[in-house]
Design a protein around this nucleic acid. Structure first.
Lengths: 297, 297
DNA sequence: CGGATGTCGTCCCAGTCGAGCATTGTTTCT
DNA sequence: AGAAACAATGCTCGACTGGGACGACATCCG
């Protein structure tokens, strides 16, 4: 049976001249492209390409097929543009909630990128630290940090884990030195998060276990506040690397494999019914940046 | 990313009015159709169908998309017809070899069916019992009975196993009774195959182990000969069910789970390069009849 | 001229995602 | 009330994808 998607790949290979170049355009593996073309040739019973070390070049049969395949490509284009037109007409709004720092670091850039593709879609972002309930319909999509998300009325999608590190200011380092391992943490004054935040986030509770409770300087209720406090206070504290590395005044003392937290994209079942919400969530899930920092050192 | 193959399924669902009906047309599972349509809606960001217990009905957006999707369907049709035209022009020949009975029971009906779809393809069948070498290029495709096929220059594809049974003629039954289990086999005169054939075929060697060698009446060198002999000789012998059940003069005494043999579709690597050979093998592999007879009794 | 480098295709292996199956639940028809 | 048609869910297993290693062939440069 002919798989229509193979035509899409065929067009890319014909245009690019090699499976490798085509695979890059299509964002799939080169091996897969080669295999799909073999499958297409089998399905059609034709030899479409000559293979050699310079790449794939169309045979006479292949050039012949290219003509009709191209018309299929045009039809596919019009499917996409028509879908965009229709989506535009009935676009509507998506309400997104996340904690301040998550919103700023991850969601807003991605929303902006998405907005360029779907200019008529409206976004309403809510980065209040207080809990926004998806169940009550106060928002459609949420970005939540936790190691496990459950809920009967929720649809969740796991994102790449977030790395954390222990940070301090440059001035603190100059005056006091800094902890270079989780054990040395006990010897430093420390800023921490409230219990309610620590609970359920592996990175934070792991760090919390290694503290000397008497050394706690104060408690801050958000990642943004933590970063701000660390810049001025004479103390160390935990931050997501993406937040800490952004500030030129802060230095990371250390990190390890256990200092990471889960991250989830969540929607209420109700909002998830909406294809435009699913499409948005799919986009976020695919484009979400991998946390580059390697853990092994 | 839009999967073009989902458009194919979309057209079927739109035409048939339910995922179940569409799945039957497409020869895929109903569940899959439903999921693909959900994926398509996500990719396009549109609600294409209303679902209820009567089936899937197009929404206004869905009807709108149907117009452009249909043009993609037409393009796909022209891809297929063009491929057939090209295949026709450079069709050529496929040489198939198999033992007499396998050829008659399985290959010839399938070849005939395939020929109807590809009328300009020529077939050359060779059912000599002597061994036809694929490696030497004496044939392109072979049907081989064995439990394991190897060979560096061969491409093999496993087919459903073949069931065997012990058979005798009606007249033998009337005169002597018949064996009703593998153990009783020892008490009956027996026709067998030569060692070279028995070797490597589980069904035959299994039976051979349970024989009283002194009761061997004679040795026949093919399944067709075995069937012919059983009709006239006063003896029992093993046959593939598909052969034995065909003759109204023969009765199956018994069978069990260990009486089956592997079956393989084989091509030389060289012939397998040819897309038309791959296409043919794929067809055989998909259309090959499952041996209906249940083993558990 | 010959070694180093880059591009590309094929082969092989392991992990994963998606298809299929079995089943449930709902609605409609007889 | 029972049967028929259909969609949706949970679970399992296989196919397919992706990644890495290797080999072939070009090109560049001393």
């Amino acid at each position: 049976m002919l798989d229509w998607d193979d035509i899409r790949i065929f067009l890319a290979v014909a245009r690019e001249g090699s499976t490798l170049a085509a695979s890059r355009k299509l964002n799939i593996n080169q091996t897969t492209v080669g295999r799909r073309m073999q499958a297409l040739e089998t399905a059609l019973g034709l030899t479409l390409f000559e293979r050699d070390t310079r790449g794939y070049t169309l045979t006479a049969q292949g050039r012949n097929m290219l003509e009709v395949a191209a018309s299929m490509g045009e039809a596919a284009e019009s499917v996409k543009t028509r879908a965009n037109q229709l989506g535009r007409a009935s676009s509507g709004k998506i309400r997104v909630t996340a904690a301040h720092s998550s919103m700023a670091h991850w969601m807003l850039p991605l929303i902006s990128e998405y907005h360029k593709i779907n200019p008529d879609l409206q976004f309403e972002t809510n980065s209040a630290e207080s809990y926004i309930s998806l169940e009550n319909g106060e928002a459609d999509v949420a970005l939540r940090a936790a190691d496990k998300i459950s809920g009967d009325t929720l649809v969740v999608r796991k994102l790449p884990p977030v790395r954390w590190g222990i940070y301090c200011s440059k001035s603190y380092l100059a005056a006091n030195g800094m902890p270079r391992s989780i054990e040395e943490l006990k010897e430093h004054p420390y800023l921490r998060f409230p219990d309610a935040m620590v609970k359920g986030v592996q990175a934070m509770s792991y760090v919390d276990q290694h503290l000397d409770k008497s050394k706690i300087v104060s408690t801050v209720d958000s990642v943004v506040s933590m970063a701000a406090s660390l810049r001025t206070e004479e103390a160390v504290g935990a931050l997501p690397c993406v937040e800490g590395d952004q500030s030129s005044e802060l230095l990371m003392c250390f990190t390890d494999n256990r200092m990471q937290s889960g991250l989830w994209l969540v929607a209420s079942k109700e909002a998830y019914q909406e294809p435009r919400v699913r499409k948005f969530m799919k986009f976020i899930g695919e484009k979400f940046p991998q946390d580059g920092r390697k853990a092994n050192f």
